[in-house]
Design a protein around this nucleic acid. Structure first.
Length: 601
RNA sequence: GCCCUCGUAGCUCAGCAGGAUAGAGCGAUCGCCUCCUAAGCGAUAGGUCACAGGUUCGAAUCCUGUCGAGGGCGCCA
C-alpha cells in the first residue's frame, strides 16, 4: 500500500518536472510513512517540505501543486494538506478490509515476501565453546539469532544457520585435563585441582563415565603428574573478602600451572588415550548443547568444526594468502598480520613463537571459507564482549582481497537476571552461573524466547524472572498468547452452540465491520507485512514483539466492546472472519519468534 | 589512556536513514464481569528526551564537547 502511494506521488513529481516546475534533480523516490496520529490519515509524505526550496516556493503551495498533479486512485478516500506542508493520505475503508480475505487465503504465508529472493545469507550464532553447558548469556544469542534467521527467511532469503564449534585450542586441552584430574580423584588419588580448571559438576559426570567404562586403566599417581609442575595461583576460595591470597595459598601463575599440567597429561597418557578423553569430553558436551538448543526451538543447518579448518589446510592457505599479499611478517619468532594497515589498533599474531596458530588465524580461515562458500551476506552474532574483535577480522578480509561489507557483525549485550527485584549473581566462578536449561525450566521456553528478543540486541536486557513466570497481563507473552487462546475459545463456543465457524467466500459481509474497534483491528492486521519486512531487513525482532502487543491490545479491546457470536448471521460471519484473520497473524508472528500459540490457557 | 555501546515518565523500554502535540507496559488513582476466559477493557495523572554548543525551514533523532553507566583493549579462546 505504501509503495502504491509512493508510485502516485512519483507520478505527480514527474509531471511537475516535465512542466518545468521543478528541476530534473528533484526526481526521487518520495518518502511515505505511516501516520502516527489518526488525524493525519493512514500515510503521510513530507515531499513538499523537502522540495520547497528547489521549487522556490512555500511548502504548502508546493503541496497544493503536487495534490493537483496526483493521479486518481480508487483506494484513496481523500488527500489533505496539513501542518507545514505534509500530504496526508486517507484510505477508504474498503482498502483496509481487503486484508482480511487475503490473510484467510494465504494463511501461514501471509506477510511473507520475496524481497530477499535469490540471495543466500549465512547466520552464525551462539558458537559457545564446547567446554560446558550453555548459560543465560548464550540464550540471548540463541533466541536472537534464531529469530533473525526466521525473519530473513520469511522475506525470501535463503538462510543457512551455522554453529562454529571451537573444538581446537587450549580451552579444549584445559577441559580434557580437568576431566582426567577428576577421574584420578575418582580412582582415589588426592590432588589439588587447578584454579584455572573447569570446576563444574558436568566435569565430574564425564569423569565418572570414563571411570565406569575403563576402570583404573587411565590412572597415574598424582605425585608423578604434579612433579616439576610450576606452582598454581590461589583459587577464589583461597582468597579473603578483599581478594588477597590467604597465608597458605600458592603464589604462582595459573596459566603456567595449567599449561604444564596439560603437557604432563599428554606425555603420561600418550596421544591415543589423551585423544580418547578429549573426544569423550567434546562429544558429551556438544551433544548436551545440541539437545539444549533443540529444546529451545533452535535448529542449525551446519555445525562447523574449527579442527576441520586445519585438517583441510585452510589455516595454512589463509596465512599464505596474507603473506603473498604482503600483510604478514616475522617478528620475535612469531608471524604477525599487519592489521594496523587496515585501521586496527595494532598488528596481531597469527603463528605463535611455539609454532601454534592462534584462534585469530583460525577465524580468518573460517571467514575466508564462509565467503568462498558463496553467501551474499554473512552475519555473525557475537556477545558484546567481542566487539574489539570486529575491526581485526574485517581487516583480515580486506587484506585477503575480499569485500568486508559482505560480513556484518551483530553484537548482543548481556542479559541480567532479576528475581524478587534483586540481581541474580552470575559470576563466572564455577557452579554459580545460571544455565540456559535452568532458565527454561524456571520460566518456560515461550517466555524465555520472547523476553530475550523484546529489547534491541545492543541494549542491555533486564530479564525479570518473576515477570516472565507471572500469569497476568503484566506479562507480555501471556498477554499475546491469551489473545490467541481467546479467539480459539470463541470458535469452540460457536461450535458448541451449533454455529458455523466456516467463513463465507471472499469479502462478503466485511462491509458490516464498522465499529471503531473493528476498524482499528483491521488496520493493525494490514500493518503486519510492513512490520515483518522492517524487522527482517533491520534484523530487529523486537519490532515484531511490539507489533504483537499492539495487535493483541486491538483484539482485547474489540473483545470487550462487542460480542462476536451475535444472532445476525451476516454480521457474525464478518466478525468471525476478522477474528480468524487476527488469529492467523498472531500465529504467524509468534511462530517466527519461536513462541507457541496455545489454543487454551 | 584509547575504542565500543548506552543515558527518553517513579521503574522497564519503544521512537533515532531529521518531520506535525515525544509513545507503550508496569507502578499510582478512578471506573467496568446477570454477557464469547477479568490471564481482559476503559479513563486520569506523570517528561527541561543527561548537559552545553552546532548543522536547518524543522533535532529525542545528525555533528562536536562535557558528565554519568556498562563493556573491550593478550603470542586466551
Amino acid at each position: 500500500m505504501r509503495s502504491q502511494i509512493q508510485t502516485l506521488l512519483g507520478t505527480a513529481l514527474d509531471r511537475l518536472v516535465e512542466r518545468g516546475r521543478l528541476p530534473e534533480t528533484a526526481r526521487q523516490i518520495p518518502q511515505v510513512m505511516r501516520s502516527q496520529n489518526p488525524a493525519h490519515g493512514d500515510f503521510s509524505s513530507n515531499l513538499a517540505l523537502a522540495l520547497a526550496k528547489a521549487a522556490r516556493t512555500q511548502p504548502r503551495a508546493l503541496a497544493q501543486e503536487l495534490l493537483e498533479a496526483l493521479p486518481e486512485a480508487p483506494f484513496l478516500e481523500k488527500v489533505e494538506i496539513a501542518g507545514p506542508g505534509f500530504l496526508n493520505f486517507f484510505l477508504t475503508s474498503d482498502a483496509h478490509r481487503v486484508w482480511i480475505p487475503q490473510i484467510l487465503a494465504q494463511g501461514p504465508n501471509f506477510g511473507r515476501s520475496q524481497i530477499g529472493a535469490g540471495k543466500r545469507v549465512q547466520v552464525e550464532f551462539v558458537s559457545a565453546n564446547p567446554t560446558g553447558p550453555l548459560h543465560v548469556g548464550h540464550g540471548r544469542g540463541a533466541a536472537y539469532g534464531a529469530a533473525v534467521s526466521n525473519l530473513l527467511e520469511a522475506v525470501g532469503f535463503q538462510v543457512h544457520r551455522e554453529y562454529y564449534v571451537n573444538d581446537a585450542g587450549r580451552q579444549m586441552d584445559i577441559l580434557t585435563t580437568s576431566i582426567w584430574l577428576r577421574y584420578l580423584e575418582l580412582c582415589g588419588e588426592t590432588l589439588r585441582f587447578p584454579s584455572n580448571g573447569y570446576r563444574g559438576d558436568y566435569v565430574w559426570d564425564i569423569a565418572a563415565n570414563l571411570h565406569r567404562e575403563h576402570g583404573d586403566a587411565y590412572r597415574q599417581p598424582a605425585e608423578t603428574l604434579f612433579a616439576g609442575v610450576p606452582e598454581d595461583a590461589p583459587t577464589e576460595e583461597e582468597r579473603d573478602a578483599q581478594g588477597n591470597p590467604l597465608a597458605d595459598a600458592p603464589q604462582g601463575d595459573k596459566e603456567a600451572h595449567i599449561d604444564a599440567l596439560i603437557g604432563r597429561a599428554k606425555d603420561l597418557l600418550g596421544d591415543h588415550r589423551y585423544r580418547l578423553i578429549f573426544e569423550l569430553g567434546l562429544n558429551t558436551i556438544l551433544d548436551d548443547i545440541r539437545m539444549d538448543l533443540a529444546q529451545f526451538g533452535v535448529e542449525y543447518d551446519q555445525w562447523f568444526s574449527e579442527r576441520s579448518l586445519a585438517e583441510r589446510g585452510l589455516i595454512y592457505r589463509a596465512i599464505e594468502r596474507l603473506r603473498e599479499a604482503g600483510y604478514a611478517y616475522d617478528r620475535a619468532g612469531a608471524l604477525w598480520f599487519r592489521a594496523s594497515a587496515f585501521g586496527d589498533e595494532k598488528d596481531r599474531v597469527l603463528v605463535r613463537e611455539n609454532g601454534q596458530t592462534t584462534y585469530f588465524a583460525s577465524d580468518i580461515a573460517y571467514h575466508m571459507d564462509k565467503l568462498e562458500r558463496g553467501f551474499d551476506r554473512v552475519i555473525d552474532i557475537w556477545g558484546a564482549d567481542h566487539h574489539g574483535y570486529v575491526p581485526r577480522i574485517k581487516a583480515a578480509l580486506r587484506a585477503l582481497g575480499d569485500d568486508p561489507d559482505r560480513l556484518s557483525v551483530s553484537l548482543v549485550q548481556f542479559a541480567i537476571l532479576y528475581r524478587g527485584g534483586e540481581r541474580v549473581p552470575m559470576s563466572t566462578r564455577a557452579g554459580e552461573f545460571v544455565t540456559l536449561r535452568q532458565l527454561r525450566q524456571e520460566v518456560g521456553r515461550d517466555a524465555a524466547r520472547y523476553f530475550y528478543v523484546m529489547r534491541r540486541a545492543e541494549q542491555h536486557l533486564d530479564f525479570d524472572l518473576d515477570l516472565a513466570k507471572s500469569q497476568s497481563n503484566d506479562n507480555p507473552v501471556y498477554y499475546v498468547q491469551y489473545a490467541h487462546a481467546r479467539i480459539c475459545s470463541v470458535l469452540r463456543q460457536a461450535s458448541d452452540r451449533g454455529l458455523s465457524v466456516e467463513p463465507s467466500e471472499g469479502d462478503q459481509h466485511l462491509d458490516l465491520l464498522r465499529e471503531p474497534q473493528e476498524v482499528d483491528l483491521i488496520k493493525c492486521l494490514g500493518r503486519y507485512p510492513e512490520v515483518l519486512e522492517a524487522a527482517a531487513l533491520q534484523e530487529e525482532p523486537h519490532q515484531l514483539t511490539h507489533y504483537l502487543r499492539d495487535l493483541a491490545n486491538a483484539f482485547h479491546s474489540y473483545y470487550n466492546a462487542h460480542p462476536f457470536l451475535v444472532d445476525d448471521e451476516k454480521l457474525r460471519d464478518g466478525r468471525i472472519k476478522l477474528i480468524l484473520a487476527t488469529r492467523q497473524v498472531l500465529r504467524n508472528a509468534l511462530n517466527l519468534l519461536g513462541v507457541s500459540a496455545p489454543e487454551q490457557m
